[in-house]
């Protein structure tokens, strides 16, 4: 199937060498060395939403356009707010294309430096290196928590926080994939965001989940109650945490009627 999608993509951006990074239900992520309009070198990421054959062409065009434009706008706003995320290079809403700068590094074991891979990588070496690795793990989690705190302080919600949607570069955490992101000032929505992350950590890093979640939340708290203390960060933090307790108890949203 990927071949057919790549053929469609080739019509939009002809003659560019592309490498598939990952494929989700909605979009294909590729990497390339070519900049769309400037003579710049470096690695760029293309996120492509292909047309879906099952949808009516009008519905399909509308969804592709609004989602692509929405995601690009969200990324631009992140940059203005100073939240670490990939820089937007160009966007083609009708074609469903977003170009962005690549973030992240390659770990010594060859994997991309997502928080997930980093944790897995460090866990493996932790027996030999001991304390040093412990602090590295803690730092990575705390940095990530701080970025999420910043996001929430700007009334933005990621919508799909998992450890594979966070990349580390030079010790700093970056957020990626804003396909499900939205704007919300409600403590409820932020709490759900944190809950989704908590569950994701639990399912991908079950052995040390408690420790990691503790560090992530600690980083979140330090940022909101530290850097944002003067703009009501403490109050927002306690509101969100209180809601998080509720969300944890409630789990899923709805009890079903026949």
């Amino acid at each position: 199937m990927t071949d057919a999608i790549l053929a469609q993509l080739d019509r939009l951006v002809p003659n560019i060498p592309l490498q598939v990074v990952s494929q989700g239900a909605e979009a294909l992520v590729l990497s390339t060395q070519t900049h769309p309009y400037a003579q710049k070198s470096g690695t760029f990421i293309i996120k492509y939403r292909p047309p879906k054959p099952y949808r009516h062409p009008k519905i399909d065009a509308q969804i592709t356009r609004s989602r692509t434009a929405g995601e690009a706008k969200f990324m631009a706003k992140l940059r203005r707010a100073g939240i670490r995320a990939p820089n937007l290079v160009s966007v083609d809403p009708n074609g469903g294309l977003i170009w962005m700068e690549s973030v992240g590094e390659i770990l010594p074991n060859g994997a991309v430096s997502s928080l997930k891979n980093l944790l897995w990588y460090l866990e493996q070496g932790s027996e030999a290196a001991g304390l040093l690795v412990q602090s590295q793990l803690e730092l990575a989690c705390r940095h990530t928590g701080a970025v999420i705190a910043k996001l929430h302080m700007n009334d933005m919600v990621h919508g799909d926080l998992t450890t594979s949607n966070m990349l580390l570069q030079e010790g700093e955490a970056y957020l990626i994939d804003f396909g499900l992101s939205s704007y919300s000032a409600l403590a409820e929505d932020k709490a759900v965001d944190l809950y989704v992350l908590e569950r994701a950590v639990l399912s991908t890093h079950s052995v040390h989940a408690e420790k990691y979640n503790g560090w992530l939340l600690a980083g979140y708290k330090d940022e909101q109650c530290g850097a944002y203390a003067s703009v009501g960060g403490k109050k927002k933090y306690s509101e969100t945490l209180k809601k998080l307790e509720d969300v944890r108890l409630r789990g899923r949203k709805r009890s079903m009627l026949g």
Partner: peptide, 18 residues
């Protein structure tokens, strides 16, 4: 029908990928 079913197929595809 077209709108509702597109939504259904989309979330099904997401679950399948997941």
């Amino acid at each position: 029908q077209e709108t509702l079913f597109s939504m259904l197929v989309e979330i099904t595809e997401r679950a399948m990928a997941h």
